[in-house]
Amino acid sequence: MQIPPPKHLSPFIRHYIFLESSKKEIRNVRLFSDGSTGLILSGDMNLYSSGSEEHMPLSFFYGALSSYKDFYSKGPFSLVAVVFQPYFLNLLVKASAKEVRDSIISVEDVLKNSFQRFQENLLNKITPLTVIRDLNIFFTELIIRENTSDYDFITAVQKYILQHKGSVSSKELENFTGYTERHLERKFDNYMGISPKKYSNIIRLHYFLSLMNKRKYNENLTALSCDAGYTDQSHLIREFKNNVGLTPKQYLKTENKMAVNFIEL
């Protein structure tokens, strides 16, 4: 279930996602980059990082992802994912987004007990819409306390990239902003955690994903990749595998897409 935020929060929050599972067996899941940062809230989740076997905090922030992260869960769970606009995490954790890139950060380490009541409500099976309503109030009060004017510039550049579906060159961004490529990279490192080029590539890749899902792969890969702005099909496949860990055909055959960038393996 995906729920949009109220209009005044949309510059900071893309959407909420509620997920739950009653299955007792182990489930392998993958989160891959969509250019966003976010928050996972749960009161009962046993989630582990694949490879390191590290037990994830019940609630955690995740920074901008360079590619993908694999996890596995043990037993039933319910969670709310708050998908941020990329720069919102910078405001919450009071650190450069570059410093927390590819990182998992326990909510308690940053905001202490601020989210405890939300975790308890999820544990007590309070309806997700009620939890999300209360989160909207919490984030609204937080933003009122913060000076958010510094985000106007990065928001404008982000919108420009989104409007062009990621198919923008460094020169076009320089002309749009009036800043040099290096200055833009510093801004993006601080607020977004990734470079303008990397963010543009991710947006273009997700535009290709949307075309592929919409058309159910009835058209050949060359036509779809061309529509998404790729001139080299091999480049598309290489970029897809680097970011998603699968080929386009493997992704399309994945049955349980809990979100566009959160899939069960």
Rank of each mutant, 00 (worst) to 15 (best):
F71N: 09
H183R: 14
D152T: 11
I104S: 08
F77D: 04
L123E: 13
F32H: 09
M56S: 10
F18H: 13
Y87N: 00
L79G: 09
L9K: 04
S10M: 13
Q119L: 10
K241Q: 12
A228L: 11
S103L: 14
S66L: 06
E53Y: 08
Y179C: 03
M212T: 01
F138Y: 15
G229H: 11
K24L: 11
S103E: 12
E219T: 14
H164V: 02
T148Q: 07
L205I: 08
Y151Q: 11
L41A: 02
S10C: 10
Y87G: 03
I202M: 09
Y207M: 04
N261Y: 13
F32R: 03
T148Y: 12
I105Y: 04
M258G: 03
V80H: 01
G35M: 03
S66D: 15
H8L: 15
V260D: 07
G63I: 02
V244A: 09
K197S: 10
S10L: 11
F139M: 10
S96W: 08
S42N: 06
F115N: 03
L123M: 10
A228W: 12
I17Y: 01
C226D: 05
F60D: 02
V100G: 06
I237N: 12
L89S: 05
L236A: 12
S66Y: 12
D109S: 14
P6M: 13
G51E: 08
